[in-house]
């Protein structure tokens, strides 16, 4: 997965927050005072970094701050799946799908297949179980699109 640069433009982030986002999407230190070390690289105090991270999380600019895990590396599975949710049932189906802790992300997309979600389970068998449960709860067919091959170059883009 490649990092996105932060577009210039008309939105609320100030210069310091942009710098935090540009510098802290990876490589957060593992040491006694990691926030102090990271803050030093950004040119602010440890206190300010902690406060700003808290605010960015509260404003939902960040969805999380911490480790991103690769469940396949611990014997689990990560599978993209989709379904066709009838418009009049969209909210109800969303609630039923999101209720499963195995659903890591869920996006509405413009297509006949209008709900796309990622299932993350601790065991390979967990995927089939989660799909069966969603099909049972919603009465809708779930299409699974497990990755057969991943193509990517790991790199980070600078803010443009």
């Amino acid at each position: 997965m490649r990092e996105l640069s932060i577009p210039q433009g008309d939105f609320m982030l100030g210069a310091v927050d942009r710098k935090i986002l540009a510098k802290l999407q990876g490589d957060f230190p593992i040491c006694e005072r990691p926030y102090a070390e990271a803050a030093g690289q950004i040119g602010i105090s440890e206190d300010e970094l902690l406060q700003r991270l808290q605010q960015l999380l509260a404003d939902k600019v960040l969805t999380r701050f911490g480790p991103m895990f690769q469940i396949e590396e611990m014997g689990g599975a990560f599978v993209l799946a989709a379904l066709v949710a009838p418009e009049e049932r969209y909210d109800e189906v969303t609630a039923l799908v999101n209720e499963l802790p195995e659903v890591a992300h869920n996006y509405r997309r413009e297509h006949a297949l209008n709900m796309w979600f990622v299932l993350a389970t601790e065991t390979k068998d967990g995927i089939a179980e989660a799909i069966a449960r969603i099909e049972r709860d919603t009465g809708l067919a779930v299409y699974a699109f497990p990755k057969e091959r991943e193509f990517f170059v790991e790199m980070k883009l600078e803010a443009r």
Binding site: L21, K60, P67, M68, F69
Partner: peptide, 11 residues
């Protein structure tokens, strides 16, 4: 590789 990276996950 169990941890891909540690840091900010932006929306």
């Amino acid at each position: 590789g169990i941890i891909r990276r540690i840091g900010a996950v932006p929306n």
